Computed example of a mutant assay.
Amino acid sequence: MSIEDTIVGDTNNSSREVADRAVDEMRAENIRSQRLQNDIIEQDKNERKDYANVLFTVTIIWLFLVLGIFISVGKGILIYSDSVIITLLTTTTANVLGLVVIVANYLFKK
């Protein structure tokens, strides 16, 4: 038995004033519940924007650092073996694509 059923049952056994007050309380509670739900949705929307911006910024910085490493290796400033360069490129690509997939799935739920 739900709370609403209990209230309705109690009001059926009470005076008209108690019944009216119970109905008013239920309406007020429904309005409060809807407002809380709207606040949660608004907060979630704002947090999604913030996290998307942070992840985008971190990804851009990471890609520029990797680009700097590749340019430095190409100019001979840094010396790394081919396996290290391949590993760096592979892991960077996997991280960027993984972040994009995770963020896209979170932002655009099916």
Results as ranks from 00 to 15, higher is better:
Val73Lys: 05
Asp24Ile: 00
Met26Val: 05
Lys75Ile: 15
Lys45Leu: 07
Thr93Asn: 01
Ser81Trp: 06
Val8Ala: 09
Phe64Cys: 08
Val66Phe: 03
Val23His: 05
Ala28Arg: 10
Asn12Trp: 10
Ser14His: 05
Leu63Ser: 12
Ile61His: 07
Gly98Arg: 04
Tyr106His: 06
Ile85Thr: 03
Val8Ile: 14
Ile85Gln: 02
Ile85Ser: 01
Val66Ala: 09
Thr6Asp: 15
Leu67Tyr: 07
Leu99His: 04
Asp20Lys: 09
Ala28Ser: 09
Ile31Thr: 12
Ile61Tyr: 08
Arg35Gln: 11
Ala104Val: 04
Arg27Lys: 14
Val101His: 05
Ser2Asp: 15
Gln34Lys: 12
Val73Ser: 07
Gln43Leu: 05
Val54Lys: 14
Thr57Leu: 07
Ala104Asp: 10
Thr93Phe: 06
Tyr51Thr: 08
Leu88Trp: 04
Lys75Asn: 10
Arg48Glu: 06
Val66Ile: 11
Thr11Pro: 00
Gly9Val: 07
Thr93Leu: 06
Ser72Arg: 06
Tyr80Ala: 08
Ile85Lys: 03
Glu17Phe: 11
Asp39Trp: 02
Asp82Gln: 14
Asn105Glu: 07
Leu107Ala: 09
Gly98Ile: 02
Ala22Pro: 00
Leu55Pro: 01
Val103Lys: 02
Leu107Glu: 09
Asn105Thr: 04
Asp20Ser: 09
Leu78Ile: 10
Val73Cys: 06
Asn13Ala: 14
Leu89Cys: 06
Ile102Ser: 04
Ile3Leu: 13
Asn105Asp: 06
